[in-house]
Design a binder for these strands. Structure first.
Lengths: 209, 209
DNA sequence: CAGTGTGAAGATGTTCACAGCG
DNA sequence: CGCTGTGAACATCTTCACACTG
């Protein structure tokens, strides 16, 4: 893969910038300065300019940035110009909420299939998304050439299911379980640990200003 | 507030350590080395030792760390020894999933009340948690002395509801909306932007090894 | 002598401050 | 003149490597 030399910290902020640029565009704004954007996204203006500059000279001195130009640029960078199909594994509590979840307004991300063990779910269409039995997971993911999975299974199944996902050719996993998954290199794992986040928030509450 | 001088990066890992220490304890292990722990949590062993050392000399040279001692220590540090009540604002799609969500096994975090505008929800008990109308929010939060809120309202209501929460005396907000909330200093906001995370994952997929 | 605790080096990220361009 | 783009300083975080100790 080509690493454009973009720092990770910068990469994580790109979706944030992209969303606010869309808001600006919808509001009919044609240009924006790093200072204006800074207020909305709560990122230092120097950081914004530095972030943008990694991609070349996107702005005009004395003017700011052209909103449309920036959106078009980031749309390609963030793969918003093509559809990404995502598989959801584990239609429980959180899983079914994510089936409904609007992963983007100008959506380029779509949950296209789900998998579960529960008899009463399998074979049904939940929120417009077909739910398959776990046995069909590897086959369906291969067939549909899905590269991204959302993992919302019980903790004890997290690693075995992950092993299957890797077999099926999955390249990225959004992991909602508290387990730190073991995967071959080349597989991207994004951990979203809600308990962890909440505990961290409470820790900050008590120990920081 | 007293900032113990613990780096933020360290603070964010504490819940992770805490959880794995509990797993070890349940498995009957009495001691653990930074190398062992490193494998499970996928954090460099030197980083673990450094993290622990901020809190003093918790380990024994040539032996490792005493699991029980470490758990007791972190339980206090993470406020696991006292119950934290949390209010949930917005019982929609994601909100109702979080009502069910087990925020911890040995739970010290509990969602104790929820708020929504929807007539058919208000006054009902959902998953054992009472749902109040939005008009009662400030009053109930004051009354129950709740300091932490989970914000799962539609984007356009995020800022106005936040202003109310601040009035009610909330100190920490777990923000599931894509809006970057404006709050007075002293209020901790933890942003959990699922679309953002997924987009970042997809970006990494295409641009990093 | 195994494994912690840590000085020092290195890597990464943020912010300042301003030269220079449109 | 206003605002970008960026060198340089600073801050934070990670990792190495090893002295030291139970």
């Amino acid at each position: 893969m080509k690493n454009h030399g973009i720092p990770k910290a910068t990469a994580k902020r790109l979706p944030l910038y992209y969303r606010y640029l869309q808001v600006l565009q919808n509001a009919g704004k044609e240009k924006v300065s790093s200072t204006e954007l800074s207020e909305a996204v709560q990122v230092d203006s120097a950081t914004i300019r530095r972030d943008f500059s990694y991609f070349g000279e996107l702005g005009k001195r004395g003017y700011g940035y052209d909103v449309e130009k920036l959106i078009n640029f980031f749309a390609v960078t963030l793969n918003e110009d093509e559809l990404t199909n995502v598989a959801l594994i584990g239609v429980g509590n959180l899983g079914s909420a994510l089936l409904n979840y609007r992963f983007h307004q100008s959506n380029s991300i779509r949950v296209s299939c789900a998998f579960d063990v529960k008899e009463d779910l399998v074979g049904r269409i939940v929120d417009g998304i077909p739910v398959y039995p776990m046995e069909d997971m590897v086959e369906q993911i291969r067939l549909q050439q899905i590269e991204v999975a959302i993992l919302t299974v019980p903790a004890q199944n997290a690693q075995p299911v992950t092993d299957e996902l890797v077999k099926a050719g999955i390249k990225g996993i959004m992991n909602f379980t508290p387990i730190r998954l073991v995967t071959p290199s080349g597989i991207q794992v994004q951990n979203v640990d809600l308990t962890n986040e909440l505990q961290t928030l409470i820790y900050f509450l008590h120990h920081y200003d």
